[in-house]
């Protein structure tokens, strides 16, 4: 067998390899005047010409498997090659653990490609729950480079749901959030675990402690949008309970009193007020305290909150104007 380094150093053209002597390469049918023509290297053209030959002949052989590997190294985004590779793997009843190692190698080089992750999912599904921890470990390795890799997170969620491995997932979220509390992908994962883990009893069982967790994160960094959205999400489809949880209004008040990084607190307060929250005098004073000049006397608190937002959050002024106009109609 040819070693990896050797392969790189001295590539023997396929046309000179004895095992391919019987195959006639099939050139790409680009026509006489193709648009977006790519100046392929000789290696690329030749590899794809031979790929087309085995693909058209539907040759599911070891040499065809090897060829798909070479083609994938040249362009890991070619879904036709990946799909054909899966057919070959099945036909040959190939060792899928080795396949996983191959995908590891590719994914480390290019971790933002749909085909790689889809293939990985296919392989892992065939191998079953015994590879669950290995798969979780692999995504963790990707996160060490890019903690927000969308494909890796999707894969991780699929692994948990299809193969299991929920035991340490909340702790894993803790770990990532401890490292970077602004990592919204980790917050999203936390929500996923809290709502879907079979071990935690679901959102109802977890809500109370999660509210506390979110509040703590907000107080540490009120400018961080993630815990605000998370807090809101804990009461998804149950806005009344959001309004009735005193900790929600309280965290808004704390941030407003501090007079810094107000936007998310005001956004939350606006939602509360639009859902029959009865503000305390303290809350009213806090709102008036942040921007007294923006509030003409006699307007109600909802409008005042919108006015403050228009002033302190100019990039979203259009949106706050719209919100203001909708609350005026509702009154």
């Amino acid at each position: 067998m040819i070693g990896e380094e050797e392969e790189e150093d001295a590539r023997i053209p396929i046309s000179q390899r004895p095992e391919w002597a019987d195959v006639r390469p099939v050139p790409q049918d680009d026509g006489p005047n193709p648009v977006v023509p790519i100046a392929y290297t000789d290696e690329f053209s030749e590899t794809m010409d031979y790929f087309r030959a085995v693909y058209l002949a539907d040759e599911r052989s070891p040499r065809a498997l090897q060829l798909t590997k070479e083609a994938i190294f040249l362009n890991s985004g070619n879904y036709t090659v990946w799909q054909f590779r899966r057919l070959i793997l099945e036909a040959l009843n190939a060792d899928l653990c080795a396949e996983l190692n191959f995908v590891n190698q590719i994914a480390r080089e290019n971790s933002k490609n749909y085909q790689i992750w889809h293939h990985r999912r296919w392989v892992a599904e065939k191998l079953g729950s015994e590879v669950a921890s290995k798969e979780l470990e692999f995504t963790k390795e990707i996160f060490s480079q890019d903690a927000k890799n969308y494909h890796a997170w999707s894969h991780r969620q699929w692994v948990l749901q299809a193969l299991g491995g929920w035991e340490d997932e909340l702790a894993f979220c803790d770990e990532l959030l401890e490292d970077d509390i602004f990592n919204n992908s980790a917050w999203n994962q936390r929500y996923f675990v809290v709502t879907r883990s079979p071990l935690l009893g679901g959102l109802d069982a977890m809500r109370d402690s999660e509210v506390a967790y979110a509040v703590k994160a907000i107080l540490a960094k009120p400018e961080n949008e993630s815990p605000w959205r998370y807090l809101r999400g804990l009461y998804k489809n149950d806005i009344k309970s959001l309004v009735n949880d005193p900790r929600v209004a309280s965290v808004c008040l704390d941030v407003l009193t501090d007079k810094r990084n107000l936007v998310h607190a005001l956004n939350m307060l606006l939602d509360l007020l639009c859902n029959d929250y009865q503000p305390s005098n303290e809350m009213k004073d806090a709102v008036d305290g942040v921007a007294p000049e923006s509030n003409p006397p006699g307007t109600n608190l909802v409008e005042r909150v919108c006015s403050v937002l228009i002033m302190v959050d100019p990039i979203r002024a259009n949106y706050w104007e719209w919100r203001k106009s909708t609350v005026c109609v509702q009154d």
Partner: peptide, 10 residues
Amino acid sequence: LGPSFSVLDA
């Protein structure tokens, strides 16, 4: 397009 576009061949 140059050879670097091979990654967009699909």
